[in-house]
Design a protein around this nucleic acid. Structure first.
Lengths: 107, 107
DNA sequence: TTCACCTGTAATTTACATCTTACATGTGTT
DNA sequence: AACACATGTAAGATGTAAATTACAGGTGAA
């Protein structure tokens, strides 16, 4: 689902040769930093990329991103599963709204 | 790329139990026919669905759609390949427009 | 202190996919 | 003829993802 945008593919391509920090990556791709943030967020949600804030030797904060070797497999069955999972999630959410039955929100 | 919309997933789910014609499918999904046409077109382009216009026993024209058992595999490498293919396609298109080879980008 | 880097996010605008309404057309049944 | 089906497309409204601009920080070096 996250691999549905050319910009995102380009990000993956750029990261395929190694980790980069946000600003550098934005420069290489020729896109604005906020836009890159958005796409990186999507890729992280999809588990294809991980980000890690680090302190450079000089003490500057830099957030590096790198690829997670992913292997997505899509068939009719996986689609059906995804739909079922989605419905279940929605149902749970609705129940959450309506009156929590008997949920013990630990935290 | 085509499996990037819940509506499309629902179409696949509905077709997973057998072929259906457009109007019937639209009724089951509760969406308008033109909208369904659009999504079916996308799915056909992606090679996940095939459509075939048939004459029913009573002589009515009906377009049936059915699932093509697809198996999409996505990895870093396939992404890189897709990008390269895309670039090649774009280059060819540009050459087509400009006039082959030997182009003198004036201006 | 100012400059040159960096990380973030809020507020908009822009562009595009999605979706509806409406129309043209055809066939068989009442 | 009017009705109930069907396929198909053209236009226009709607919604949302995508993208830009503008801000608020923070560090180290000249």
């Amino acid at each position: 689902m996250a691999v549905g945008h050319p910009q995102r593919l380009r990000i993956i391509a750029e990261l395929s040769s190694g980790r980069l920090h946000v600003s550098e990556l934005a420069r290489r791709l020729g896109i604005s930093r906020p836009l890159l943030y958005m796409h990186l967020q999507r890729l992280e949600e999809a588990g294809m990329v991980t980000g890690e804030l680090e302190l450079s030797p000089e003490g500057k904060a830099m957030k590096f991103h790198e690829l997670v070797p992913f292997r997505v497999h899509v068939t009719v069955d996986t689609v059906l599963d995804a739909l079922r999972a989605d419905e279940a999630a929605k149902a749970a959410e609705a129940a959450d709204q309506e009156g929590p039955d008997d949920v013990q929100e630990s935290k």
